[in-house]
Design a protein around this nucleic acid. Structure first.
Lengths: 159, 159
DNA sequence: ATTTAATTAATTGTGCTCAATTGATTTTGC
DNA sequence: GCAAAATCAATTGAGCACAATTAATTAAAT
């Protein structure tokens, strides 16, 4: 999502400053980077943190569902979930009804971690100073973009 | 529509839907993913593409400057630039004035690649359907966030 | 001038991300 | 029933991304 202004038909469509995707990409990495000192205290990476977030909300979920929620596939989730299991935060077992499904369940230790993680959102909010209306607007626009990407999932982008 | 600001003081601050960072993170990955079919035609990854973008704009640049522009460090850039050199798009040599600096220069082949890449922004714009005013607003907010993160670079976020 | 500090790219190690493939399992068509 | 298709997680391989370290070089401060 390159052009923001009239750069579509002009030569500067390939200028970095005219890209919409690049600040999205850079921003995401910078913000995730800011999580690290806080998440280090919990021994979690950002990906592990958002996986735990889903589990705190839904203590029993299939790998498939988790992936859909986080926009991640099994190639990413499999090692993440194995590490969370090694750390004792989740259990992994096959669904007896359908052996293809992997069921991930939150352990007691995993549940207890939520209390220790409670400080993270507040600290991050203090770290990322942004006007509330800007944050709200950004939230809305990102979800709108995410929706539009998802709905156009199978469409041929090239035409 | 979940509330972003108020959730910070309540228990649901750890709900995935109340996060601002998560849609940022998910959106960035989804959009970069959409570049792939187009960039595949050029034989570039997204990271290589944005590096080339800087070089099309500034045909001679130090690794340090490139990193500052892309928010990437040498751990990421070194292998990326080596691959671009192998592909024949850039040359790498030390600065004679200061041997610590690596000077990256665009080759003829690299310059020629720009013409082949000219279709990418338009195709992506067609792929990511978004209202122009939304795109502009998103662009503004992302840059604002990026600036605020950068200015608060060395401050202790934890207090 | 010599030591000290700062700057820089490169290296290393860990972990994520994704495409493509594999193999097990279940569902569907007939 | 049974073959074909669909649906999963897991695996593999390539390429980021980043923290921490190393080594080379330059700049600064006696």
């Amino acid at each position: 999502m390159p052009e923001v202004k009239e750069s579509l038909r002009t030569d500067d469509a390939l200028l970095l400053d005219n890209q919409l995707c690049f600040p999205l990409y850079a921003c995401a990495r910078e913000v995730v980077k800011r999580y690290r000192p806080f998440l280090d205290e919990l021994g979690l990476t950002y990906t592990q943190y958002i996986a735990m977030m889903v589990l705190w909300e839904t203590p029993c979920v299939s790998s498939r569902q988790l992936g859909r929620r986080l926009f991640l596939d099994s190639g990413t989730l499999t090692p993440v979930l194995k590490r969370l299991e090694t750390m004792g935060y989740v259990n992994r077992k096959r669904d007896e009804k359908d052996e293809r499904n992997l069921i991930v369940t939150l352990t007691e230790t995993g549940q207890a971690l939520k209390a220790r993680a409670a400080f993270v959102p507040g600290q991050m909010a203090a770290c990322i100073r942004m006007e509330p209306q800007d944050a709200m607007q950004l939230y809305t626009l990102l979800h709108r973009l995410l929706d539009s990407i998802q709905t156009g999932e199978d469409s041929d982008c090239a035409e």
